[in-house]
Simulated scan of single mutants.
Amino acid sequence: MAVVRSVLFNVVAFVLTGVMGVGALPIRWFMPAQALPYAKLWSRLVLWLFRTICGVRVSVSGLEHLPSSGAALIASQHQSAFDTLVWMLLLPRPCYVMKGELTRIPLLGPMLVLTGMMPVERAAGARALRLLLQGTDKAVADQRQIIIFPEGTRTMPGEHVALKPGIAAMSNHTGLPVIPVATNSGQFWGRNAFVKRSGVLHVCIGPAIGPAKRAVLLDEIEKSWRTLEEHAGL
């Protein structure tokens, strides 16, 4: 059954993305201010398909820790493509820190730029950090909620990797605290996994921490993730 559901979800989501990708062209040309609402609609539809077809129930805890408006820094675990969509539904003005190469994908790339996402060329070394902080300043001035995945890549459930220092630099540069988020999304929409699993997917949002020195803040993010995982039984 999981295979059948996964085939149906992947086919329908692919068609939806293609149709909405073409439908985005008039928005890019004539209504750029509608780019973010349009992206939110696409995310909402894809996640509705994921929940409905694949039999996944999404449980979000700690919503009281999220801002209703204004700039914020969110450090989320990253196990799944789900993590790159859900914040479109949970935040008023989300801004993802993402790989620069995504902006070069036909149809999708120009929309990512237009919606105000923050592309980072990770191979650029020290220049990448300068560009990250410049993008952070712009997002904060625009009252955006910035989502960053400090692990740097998608990981397996239970896998621990060294965190990238960018989140600490962003927090210390702006003076904003960091809101930690743990998830078990990889159990249901795994990295490079065709089959999607049913069950209860948790998104656990913790209280803000920092700013603090880089090593201290990264350690606090790790500890917060472990605490959130334990409380949710992940």
Rank of each mutant, 00 (worst) to 15 (best):
A72L: 05
W48A: 11
P207D: 11
P94V: 07
I27K: 04
P26W: 09
A128E: 04
F188S: 01
G70F: 11
T84V: 13
W225L: 03
R122M: 08
P157Q: 08
P94F: 07
V113E: 13
A81T: 10
A24E: 09
A168W: 00
S171I: 01
V195D: 01
L73K: 01
K138I: 12
A232T: 05
R130Y: 12
N184I: 07
G152F: 05
A126G: 14
I53L: 11
P67L: 04
V216A: 15
I147N: 00
W87R: 04
K196I: 02
R28K: 13
M1H: 14
V7D: 03
V161W: 12
P177D: 09
P119D: 02
I53M: 03
G55S: 11
S76V: 04
L234D: 08
A182T: 02
C204D: 13
I146L: 12
Q134F: 05
K196Y: 02
S43K: 03
L49T: 07
H160V: 15
K196N: 02
G70Y: 09
G18T: 06
I147H: 01
L41Q: 14
G116C: 08
A81K: 06
F9M: 04
W87L: 04
M156Q: 14
L47N: 02
P211T: 06
R191S: 12
L132K: 03
M170K: 02
F188D: 00
E121V: 07
G166I: 02
G233K: 02
A123I: 06
P26H: 05
